[in-house]
Design a protein around this nucleic acid. Sequence first.
DNA 1: ACCCAAATGCGAACTGGTTGCGAGAGCGCG
DNA 2: CGCGCTCTCGCAACCAGTTCGCATTTGGGT
Lengths: 151, 151
Amino acid sequence: MSALAAGTGPTSVDDVLARLRARGGRVTNARRQLLEALFSSTGHRTAEDLAAEIQGRAPDVHISTVYRNLDELERLGVVVHAHLGHGPATYHLSSHSHSHLVCGECGVAIEAPDEMFMCLADDAESSFGFHIDPHHFAVLGTCKGCVKPTS
Amino acid sequence: MSALAAGTGPTSVDDVLARLRARGGRVTNARRQLLEALFSSTGHRTAEDLAAEIQGRAPDVHISTVYRNLDELERLGVVVHAHLGHGPATYHLSSHSHSHLVCGECGVAIEAPDEMFMCLADDAESSFGFHIDPHHFAVLGTCKGCVKPTS
DNA sequence: ACCCAAATGCGAACTGGTTGCGAGAGCGCG
DNA sequence: CGCGCTCTCGCAACCAGTTCGCATTTGGGT
C-alpha cells in the first residue's frame, strides 16, 4: 500500500505529519514524540503509558497534550482506541485494529481474529439490523489459565 | 422456582431481605427502598438513577449507601451490573441477566438472546480455551436506525 | 522578521466510583 | 422492656481517568 494512501493506514511518522500539515495542522515536538511512541510498538498503549515514554525524552509534554493529540489522530483515522475492561482506554495504530478477549481474572488481552465474530455479526444484522463493532469494546470472560484457578 | 431457592433468582423484596437477615445482615430502610426500586422496574438502572428514585421517598439515603448495597446484593447474587458503553454501569436483578447490543450513535441498548453468542462462545473456547461472559460488557455497534443517518 | 492562529503547559473541574470514620440504628438476648 | 454489640449509614474526602479554560508559546506562511 502506498505511503500516501488517503483515509486510513498510515505507514510512517512522516506520512502522518505530512497529512497533519496538509490539513492546516502544525508539526510540533509533542506530536512527533507521540507518533514515534505509537509507531515504535505494536501493542496496546494507555495514554499514561505513552505520556510516560514521551516524558522520558521531552519532560514538558503534558498528559493533557497527549490526550488532545490522540484525539486529533483518531479524528484523522491514524489511531483508534479500545476499552479493554475496567481500566484506562488503550490506543494503537488503526492498521493494527482487531478484536479482544479480556480475562476478568488476570486481565490478559487476547487478540481475536475478526472471523470469530462473523457469525455473531451476521446474526445481529439479520435479527436486529444491528451492525456490531467488535473492535471498540473487548469481550469479557475467563482465560484458559483462570478457568480453574489452582484446582 | 421456589421463593426460597438458594443462590440466585430472588422473587420478591421480602425474599431478599430474609436472605440478608439469615446471613447476619440487617434490614434497613435504605435496603428496602433499594430493593423496591430494583423490583419495580425491569430495565437497566444506574446507581445515580436508583439513588434519585429512592431519595424521592427517603431523602437521607446517600448514594454511597446505594453503591455499597448494590455491591452487597451483587455478592448475594441478587443483582448483577453490566457496562453498556462509556457511561455509568447499569444494575438489574440477576434473573433479568442477558447480553446487550449498544448503539454507539444513539445509545439504545438491545437485549440480545444468549443463543446469538453461542457460536462466538464455542469458537473462543476451542481456539483459545477462553470462556466468554457476554453479559458483563455490551457489544458496541450501530443500530438499524443509525446505520445510514439522514442519508 | 512579523504575525496570528494553532498548539501547548498547567491546573482545576468533572464523572463515576470508593473509602475511612464517627454517629446511629437493628435486633438477639436477658 | 431495655442493653449493648455490631452492622450500616451519612458524609466528606479521596481516587482514577479524562477533559476544559486560559494565558503563553510557537510553527510556519508571507
